[in-house]
Lab assay of single mutants.
Amino acid sequence: RSVMTEEYKVPDGMVGFIIGRGGEQISRIQQESGCKIQIAPDSGGLPERSCMLTGTPESVQSAKRLLDQIVE
């Protein structure tokens, strides 16, 4: 099973929602998708923050879907 890492951008203002209280939302996304998510510590003043998604292609797709649901 191939593991890939893909960069994915999320709106900087939504990072708090994505991480959730005490990190529980991001933990849930990682468990549900099976994908490891690393969010950049800051956006460098840009409107979007970079996330690194690491996992199988299916888990990366799944994580993107879950992130999109939060961001919308």
Rank of each mutant, 00 (worst) to 15 (best):
I29Y: 02
E32M: 08
V60H: 01
D42G: 09
G34F: 02
T56G: 06
K36N: 08
G22R: 13
L66K: 10
Q69G: 14
M14R: 04
S62Q: 12
G23F: 03
G44R: 12
A63W: 00
G45S: 11
I18C: 04
D68V: 07
G44T: 14
D42V: 07
R28K: 11
G20V: 02
E32C: 06
Q25D: 07
V15Y: 04
S59H: 08
I18E: 04
Q69N: 12
I70W: 12
S50R: 13
D42E: 14
S62C: 15
E24C: 07
V3Q: 14
L66M: 13
Q38P: 00
M52L: 14
K36A: 12
R21C: 04
K64L: 02
V15H: 04
S33E: 01
L67E: 01
P41E: 14
A63F: 00
T56H: 08
G44Q: 12
P11I: 03
G22E: 13
R1L: 04
T54K: 14
E58M: 09
S27W: 09
S62K: 14
V60F: 01
V3I: 15
Y8I: 11
E32S: 07
Q31V: 04
E7L: 11
C35M: 00
S59R: 08
Q38K: 10
S62P: 01
T56E: 10
D42H: 10
M14N: 05
I37K: 00
D68R: 12
A63N: 00
A40C: 12
I37Q: 00
L46A: 12
K9C: 05
K36I: 07
P11H: 03
S50Q: 12
Q38D: 10
E72C: 11
R49S: 06
P57Q: 15
P11R: 07
E72S: 14
E6K: 13
P11V: 03
C35F: 00
E32G: 03
Y8H: 15
G34A: 05
D42N: 11
E32D: 07
S43V: 08
D12G: 09
S27A: 15
E48L: 14
L66I: 10
G55M: 00
E24T: 11
P57D: 06
S59P: 01
E32Y: 02
E6L: 11
Y8K: 04
Y8F: 13
E58R: 07
Q69W: 02
G45Y: 06
D42Q: 09
V71L: 09
A40T: 12
I19H: 08
I37W: 00
C35W: 00
S33R: 01
T5I: 10
D12R: 11
R49F: 02
S59D: 09
M4V: 10
R28T: 08
Q30H: 07
F17W: 13
Q31G: 06
R65Q: 12
A40W: 05
G34D: 06
Q69K: 13
L53P: 00
L46V: 08
M4L: 11
I26S: 02
P41V: 05
P41H: 04
S50G: 09
I26D: 01
E7H: 15
E48M: 06
Q38N: 05
Y8L: 08
L67C: 03
E6F: 07
R21P: 11
K36Y: 04
V3C: 09
P57C: 05
K64F: 02
R1I: 14
E72M: 13
P11C: 04
G23D: 09
G16I: 04
I18R: 02
S43H: 08
P11A: 07
G23W: 05
K64R: 12
V3A: 08
M52A: 09
V10Q: 01
V15N: 03
S50P: 10
I39N: 01
S62F: 07
G23I: 03
V10N: 01
P41S: 12
I37L: 06
I29F: 04
Q69R: 13
E58P: 08
S43W: 04
L53M: 06
I18D: 03
T5H: 09
V10M: 14
R65C: 11
E7C: 15
S50K: 12
Q38A: 12
G16A: 12
P41F: 03
I26N: 01
P41T: 12
G16C: 07
E6G: 06
V15Q: 07
P57N: 14
S27G: 12
S43F: 06
S27D: 10
E32K: 07
